Amino acid sequence: MHTQENIEFVTNQTVILDYLREISSNNIPIEIYSTEPEATWIYKSSIQNIETKNKQIVLRQVLPSNWQEFIPPTTRIEISCRMPLGTIKFRSLLSPLDDSENSLYCRLTLPKKMSRKQLRANFRISLDRFSSRVSFKLGEETEVMGKCLDMSMGGALLQLSKNDYDIQNGQVIDPFNLLIADTLDLSSAFKVCNIEQNDRGLLLGVQFLDLKPSQTKPINAALNKIERQNITT
């Protein structure tokens, strides 16, 4: 499967914490870089835990151990972590966890923003052979129903059953539910990127918003399953 990179900036603190906890619980290595292009040093560590009350991330020993020679506590650094579906990056400050001379643990300030460079398929996968259902509400009373025609890691093409819904380009729908039989049950938000009419109703091209790691993994697994079945049947 060919891939392309899609960079998204994340400011939702719940999503940021979910990514950090995912990195910590799976003991995924992180790399520490300078924000200055001429600096060539790289340090490595991993996340021990996240202390939300103190707004800090506790790291295990940073290696090589001479990091304090190059990274003063007031110097902003870049953190990078390669996750299964892409790379997470954010900027922070690094300092020893305590004042003891032989302290092995360090701390990062908790970021308010991170970038997510997501690897996603550069083509959408057809759901023609799969039963799907989409549902969401417009306002308090209007229940919208439809199905999903195709899907990628970043969004989907939805076929709605009517063409008289009051939906605008750029509109954010939250929440919506996408159910693909025996494959995926997704509840999330989306932004409307394109609207067209056909003889069956409205076609919506949508972009998924603020997906958590616990959601991207099932989407990736579902797309792989659908692609395999599309090829073999």
Score class of each variant (00 low, 15 high):
S152L: 07
S152A: 06
S152E: 01
M153K: 02
M153S: 06
M153R: 00
M153P: 03
G155P: 07
G155A: 02
G155E: 04
A156S: 07
L157E: 04
L158G: 04
Q159E: 05
Q159T: 03
Q159N: 01
L160A: 01
L160W: 00
S161Q: 14
S161T: 10
S161A: 11
S161M: 12
N163M: 02
N163A: 10
N163K: 07
D164S: 11
Y165A: 04
D166E: 13
D166V: 08
I167H: 01
I167V: 08
I167T: 03
N169K: 11
N169F: 05
N169W: 04
V172M: 01
I173M: 04
D174N: 13
P175D: 12
P175R: 12
P175Q: 12
P175Y: 12
N177W: 05
N177P: 05
L178N: 08
L178M: 15
L178A: 14
L179E: 06
I180V: 11
I180G: 01
T183M: 15
L184Y: 06
L184S: 05
L184Q: 02
D185W: 08
L186P: 10
S188Q: 13
S188W: 09
F190A: 02
F190S: 02
K191A: 11
K191F: 01
V192F: 00
V192E: 01
C193M: 13
N194I: 11
N194H: 15
N194R: 15
E196P: 11
E196F: 14
E196A: 15
Q197M: 15
N198W: 11
N198L: 07
N198T: 08
D199A: 14
R200M: 14
R200C: 09
R200I: 06
R200A: 13
G201R: 10
L202W: 05
L203A: 12
L204V: 07
L204Q: 02
L204Y: 00
G205S: 10
V206M: 04
Q207P: 08
Q207E: 14
F208N: 00
F208Y: 06
F208C: 03
F208Q: 02
L209D: 13
L209V: 14
D210S: 12
L211K: 01
L211F: 08
K212S: 14
K212P: 09
K212V: 06
P213M: 15
P213D: 15
P213V: 14
S214K: 09
Q215V: 07
Q215A: 09
Q215C: 08
T216I: 14
K217I: 09
P218A: 04
I219T: 03
L223G: 10
